[in-house]
C-alpha cells in the first residue's frame, strides 16, 4: 500500500507540468470566452435595439433571453475540454510507452522495484482517474465564477435565471454533474473499465510484440462484447428484461471485464513482460 501511494505520487508528478498547462488553458479560454460571448451578445443586442428602435421587452419577445447554454455551447468553453480529453486519451498510452522508449528505459527500474508489479498498473490507473476527476472538479469550480462573469456583463432583463443548481437541463453538463451518485459511479466506472482494458491491451502488446497487437485487438473486442452483452441480449429478446435486471447484468459484466483485465495484467507483468 505504501509503495502504491509512492508510485501514485510519482506518476502524478510526472504529468504535473502538462496538467498545470491544461488547467491554465481551460481557465484562460473559458474566462475569456465568458467575457467575449457575453460582450458579443450585448453588442449585437444594442445594435439591434438601436437600429430597430425596440424596447427591451419587445427585443426579448422577438429574440428571446440569453441562456447560459450559449456560452457553454461556444468554442471557448468546449474546445479546451475536448483538447484536455484528447490529451488524457493520448496519455493513457503514453503513461506506459514512455517507460519503454527513449534513452533511459525507466521500465527496468519500475519492474525491479521490490513490490508486486501489479502495483505499477494500479498506480498508473489511479493517476489517470485522478487527472480526469481533477479536471472535472476544476470545471465544477469554474462554472459559478463564469456565471458571475456573464451576469456582471449581461443585465438581468436580458438573461434567463441561471444558477449552478439549474444545470440538470444542460445536456452538455450531464457528464460533469451526474444527477445522482449512482450516475456518477456509472459514468466514471465505465471510464475506469475502459482505461483498465486499454492498459491490459498495452501490456499484451508489450509482452508479445507484433503478435501482441493482434491479441490486444482481439482482447479489446472481447471485453467490449462481454460488457455490452446484456444490452444486446435485451435488444434481441425484444425488451424482455426489466431495466433493473439489465442494470444488474451490466454490473456483473463490468466486474467480470475489470476483474479479468486486472488478472491478465498481473499475469503478464509477472511472467510475460519483456523489456
Amino acid at each position: 500500500m505504501k509503495n502504491y501511494l509512492k508510485l501514485l505520487n510519482f506518476e502524478v508528478n510526472r504529468f504535473f507540468k502538462l496538467y498545470l498547462t491544461l488547467i491554465g488553458l481551460i481557465i484562460v479560454s473559458q474566462f475569456i470566452g465568458a467575457i467575449v460571448v457575453s460582450k458579443g451578445y450585448m453588442n449585437v443586442t444594442d445594435q439591434v435595439i438601436n437600429k430597430n428602435q425596440l424596447s427591451v421587452s419587445q427585443y426579448i419577445k422577438e429574440y428571446g433571453l440569453f441562456s447560459f447554454e450559449q456560452f457553454v455551447g461556444s468554442e471557448w468553453f468546449v474546445l479546451p475540454i475536448l483538447f484536455s480529453i484528447a490529451m488524457l486519451m493520448i496519455y493513457v498510452f503514453f503513461i506506459w510507452y514512455r517507460d519503454w522508449f527513449g534513452k533511459n528505459t525507466f521500465i527496468y527500474r519500475l519492474l525491479m522495484l521490490p513490490t508486486e508489479r501489479i502495483t505499477i498498473y494500479f498506480a498508473k490507473l489511479t493517476t489517470i482517474m485522478l487527472l480526469v476527476l481533477g479536471l472535472v472538479t476544476l470545471q465544477i469550480l469554474l462554472i459559478p465564477i463564469e456565471i458571475k462573469i456573464v451576469t456582471s456583463i449581461i443585465p438581468t432583463d436580458f438573461r434567463s435565471d441561471f444558477s449552478s443548481s439549474h444545470f440538470d437541463s444542460l445536456e452538455m453538463l450531464v457528464w460533469l454533474y451526474p444527477n445522482a451518485f449512482i450516475e456518477f459511479i456509472l459514468i466514471y466506472g465505465v471510464g475506469l473499465i475502459l482505461v483498465a482494458v486499454l492498459f491490459t491491451a498495452i501490456l499484451i502488446e508489450r509482452s508479445y510484440g507484433l503478435k501482441g497487437i493482434f491479441f490486444a485487438i482481439v482482447y479489446g473486442m472481447l471485453s467490449f462484447g462481454v460488457f455490452i452483452a446484456p444490452i444486446l441480449l435485451n435488444v434481441f429478446s425484444n425488451d424482455y428484461f426489466y431495466a433493473l435486471e439489465i442494470f444488474l447484468m451490466l454490473l456483473v459484466m463490468s466486474i467480470i471485464v475489470l476483474g479479468s483485465a486486472i488478472w491478465i495484467a498481473n499475469h503478464l507483468l509477472k511472467y510475460k513482460i519483456r523489456v
Binding site: 533511459n104 525507466f106 527496468y108
Partner: peptide
C-alpha cells in the same frame, strides 16, 4: 545494472 541508465533523464 543494465547498459542503459534506468532513471528518468
Amino acid at each position: 545494472i543494465p547498459d542503459t541508465i534506468t532513471m528518468l533523464p
